[in-house]
């Protein structure tokens, strides 16, 4: 069994600051990490590997320094790492990204047939959740998004049963391999790298694949040229016109009382609605 896990190296968005004058992102000193959502995908693949001895290949499209993120995945237990990197790929939106990743996955499939492709639910920098579906469509694989549990995999029979988070409930789906799975967050806990894993990661070479290596000849499909969406403007979020009214009070109790009084004096309809809401809740409770 062969599993590919697509990952992305992202800036740790919790630590990003915007330059107050130039209004641009200050990347200096912001650590690059493996997209946290992708780690749930990797862990799920590694669990299948633990059970079945499947081969796990991690794959990423990105600049040369994204190799660090791939090495991290090797230290956790992935068997191979491939960095898909080429100057022509830069500036790609999700459509152009899925084109390149699909080409790389096809190349990988030729070397050893793929049964499953995992991605995270979305990235923390782009937040789009579009690349997973894009890959599935381009490869003609079944798409299983927001998977919270893999209930069954039968490689012989090419069947898979998963639980998927849908609106208002969980869908249990039976599908066919190969499939693209985007893994829901919080569904497993990523393991820690052990010493042998770290040594392997330090030793092992990451393969670099450029556009020739994955058979891309049409440059209108990749990078900025292959991206229908373009960023036309970047701006700071609009500041809210009102500045908060400071509530005074000697003690917490006095401050709380002053606040509640002021709030319901300013917004009498809020108090009315709140009382009605509480009445409804009480009525519901009585019923059940």
């Amino acid at each position: 069994m062969h599993i590919a896990v697509c990952i992305k190296q992202v800036p740790d968005s919790a630590q990003i600051r915007v330059h107050p004058v130039t209004n641009t992102i200050m990347r200096q000193g912001v650590p690059a990490i493996v997209n946290p959502f992708d780690l749930f995908a990797l862990e799920e693949a590694l669990r299948i590997k633990d059970r079945t001895g499947a081969r796990v290949t991690v794959l990423s499209m990105g600049p040369p320094q994204a190799e660090d993120a791939l090495k991290k995945c090797i230290s956790l237990g992935a068997d191979d790492a491939i960095l898909v990197t080429d100057k022509a790929f830069s500036g790609a939106d999700t459509l152009a990204t899925s084109y390149v990743l699909a080409a790389a996955l096809r190349t990988l499939h030729e070397k050893q047939p793929l049964d499953l492709v995992f991605t995270g639910k979305q990235t923390i920098d782009g937040d789009t959740a579009q690349v997973g579906p894009g890959i599935a469509i381009r490869l003609g694989y079944q798409l299983l998004t927001y998977v919270s549990r893999i209930a069954k995999i039968d490689v012989q029979d090419s069947r898979i049963v998963v639980e998927r988070r849908a609106e208002g409930g969980v869908q249990v789906l039976e599908s066919r391999l190969p499939a693209v799975i985007t893994m829901l967050e919080g569904t497993n806990t990523i393991r820690f790298a052990d010493m042998p894993g770290m040594f392997t990661a330090a030793r092992q070479q990451t393969q670099h694949w450029n556009r020739e290596a994955i058979g891309i000849t049409d440059l209108t499909q990749v990078g900025l040229k292959g991206s229908p969406t373009v960023v036309a403007q970047v701006f700071a979020p609009k500041p809210k016109a009102v500045r908060a009214l400071r509530i005074e009070g000697e003690t917490p109790a006095a401050m709380a009382e002053a606040f509640v009084d002021k709030l319901f004096t300013d917004y009498p309809q809020l108090e009315e609605a709140l009382l009605e809401h509480l009445d409804q809740l009480a009525a519901q409770e009585q019923q059940s």
Partner: peptide, 27 residues
């Protein structure tokens, strides 16, 4: 506080129980 209507400057651990009392009494 740049996008709030009301600012309660203080310790949340003290203010939350106080608010609960104040809301309950008022309602």
């Amino acid at each position: 506080f740049d996008f709030s209507n009301y600012a309660l400057i203080g310790n949340a651990l003290e203010l939350l129980p106080a608010l609960q009392t104040a809301f309950a009494a008022r309602l």
